[in-house]
Design a binder for these strands. Structure first.
Lengths: 352, 352
DNA sequence: CTGAAAGCGCTTACAG
DNA sequence: CTGAAAGCGCTTACAG
């Protein structure tokens, strides 16, 4: 048995230079000149630049950004904190943000909090430690933002992707209150008086209540359900309760489309007709809303617009060290209703 | 007009120390000791450690990882390259990977390639420059991996999340060939002889063809469609062609569930019965497959398992500088069939 | 038990 | 046109 093992051939195929020093040694120039040359400085003549570049290319040299960042004080990296990427709207947001950031030369560090404030705090520290140049965050809890205050003090560029306009931070968000208001109003205008809500509270609940009030309808607490989640299964499980009410609900607004789709599935299994026996409107207008059967009416979520404006605003904050910080900017986007079959048309028989 | 603007009150509420130097000055110890203390070294007495920690906490000090990384030669950051995060399976993969990585103390830098080899190459360079400790990649093209060779030379920890077992890299992937084989075989066993395929080629096409061959069925090229994409709309648009064939297809296998759902939607609009007139099996077993109407049969994709094994293997490669590198490890996971209504039961009337 | 020094791989004034 | 030096904020031997 041979104790001496030859290096495999391919180990020698590529020469690798990991540092400026290596290519300096190879070319005979100083680290200094190599650095300048590789960044295309006019201060080094073209011929030299080409010579150095070709050696760098041969070695497949890639600059060490951590060293570069240490001196430049910027990492060209943005932290993105989301509650959950499996939610269709947040998937879309992550997708748009990543592309926009990449175009601008930034990399995205993505952290997920699963709606836990503890995770959110930790994420903030992780991203600060990583020295990200800015943060985009979809907060776990719209009402509890105090842990972001410290960032504000250090003038850390931060843009929230959801929340209320009273939040003391830069913010780009859909107007959930208005969305719920519009959906509820639409159902009222169709003739419904027993409109149920599946929602964990917050802005959507407020919009729902306001619409009822504005149309002189009583707010019946027994019509308001906290389905214990935002997914298909939660809607499915919560649906039966609608028909135990006396009188039963004739319409339903849900905090997410999956909740609505789950409720509809249960109804179909019971041969309850949608929208004849239950008119349904969801929230977010996800892909599945378009091709469910019946098509699901929904409140739109403009992920592209939110992402674009948020990234744009973040870049402003990054490039304007402190001036922009003093004045926070809020953009609240008005949602539309995407009406399909599930919400139905005007009721044939007006319920008394 | 007053030219002198007072600093707002809140600018002074928090004191901020961004460097070890600041807290060294505050406590009177050297940078050195502070560094040790903050990392809980036994070499500095507990009393001193506590004193230093409390000052650090008061200043809300967070270590600068870019400086730390420069000396430790590790960034505690993993690069993840996916073709697209809006695809349900890749969303799931990104989600699992992020959580696993977070548990291990790593942050995830996510880059999307949109299936472009150019983007993929650029992503590789970006991540190398960022000095990520390892990479997890879902390659744009299973057959074109040459740009990963350079990483191999530098013993850069890399695990592929899809591809063929012949790829010269560490790999954890679903066995798409086998998945397509099983689905096709199932359709054959149900009595189908005119089985169409919506797929861009590759492993799934191979599995489909092999199953036909193994059952002595002719491979009819007119049954094989390249739908020009993997989404709902592509399936919807490609479906009519199935019924222009002579004789028409009686079964359909698609490369993704959305393709199947789109095709089914078109059929429903034409009052074509699923599965009676067309038995359908999709790929990936996404959420929507469960609650579509009819339920969509599909080939499973075990995102949790792939993510877990991939992260585990990557950690091995990271901790074992070179030994593990010489031998690449491949794990090809066998998919199952998730059978629901869309694929039907045995054909009542056996087609000649 | 604690500090001064060197160094991680770069960039940025500053000389010459 | 090019190089030597200082420094970014840390950690790691090395002294004392």
């Amino acid at each position: 048995m041979n104790a001496y093992v030859l290096e495999p051939f391919w180990l020698r195929v590529f020469e690798v230079a990991s540092r400026l020093k290596d290519i300096a040694k190879e070319t005979g120039y100083s680290i200094n000149t190599v650095s300048l040359a590789l960044r295309g400085s006019e201060r080094v003549p073209e011929a030299t630049r080409n010579k150095i570049s070709s050696v760098a290319k041969k070695f497949h040299y890639v600059p060490n950004n951590v060293a570069r960042s240490l001196v430049s004080q910027q990492t060209m990296t943005i932290g993105v904190i989301l509650t959950d990427i499996t939610s269709p709207i947040l998937t879309a947001v992550a997708h748009y943000i990543e592309r926009l950031l990449a175009q601008l030369g930034y990399a995205m560090v993505l952290i997920t909090t699963d709606k836990s404030l503890e995770h959110e705090k930790r994420a903030l520290d992780v991203l600060r430690a990583q020295q990200v140049d800015g943060m985009l965050v979809f907060p776990a809890n719209h009402a509890n933002l105090s842990h972001f205050e410290a960032l504000k003090e250090t003038a850390y560029p931060l843009v929230l992707l959801a929340g209320r306009r009273t939040a003391p931070f830069d913010l780009i968000a859909m107007d959930d209150t208005l969305g719920a208001y519009k959906a509820t109003r639409h159902l009222i205008e169709l003739g419904h008086k027993r409109i149920a809500l599946f929602s964990g509270g917050g802005e959507k609940l407020e919009g729902y209540q306001q619409a009822l009030r504005d149309h002189d309808l009583e707010i019946d607490q027994s019509l308001i359900f906290e389905p214990g989640g935002i997914d298909y299964e939660h809607g499915y499980k919560a649906a039966p309760a609608l028909f135990r009410l006396e009188p039963p609900a004739t319409a339903l607004l849900t905090a997410t489309d999956y909740l609505a789709l789950g409720a509809i599935a249960w109804c179909k299994a019971q041969s309850i007709k949608i929208p004849e026996q239950l008119a349904v409107i969801g929230f977010d207008d996800i892909e599945a809303a378009k091709y469910s059967d019946p098509g699901l009416s929904s409140v739109t979520y403009d992920a592209a617009r939110i992402s674009k404006r948020a990234v744009h605003r973040l870049m402003e904050l990054i490039s304007q060290p402190s001036a922009a910080q003093k004045q926070t900017e809020k953009t609240i986007i008005e949602p539309d209703l995407a009406l399909r079959e599930s919400s139905g048309k005007h009721l044939k028989v007006s319920v008394s």
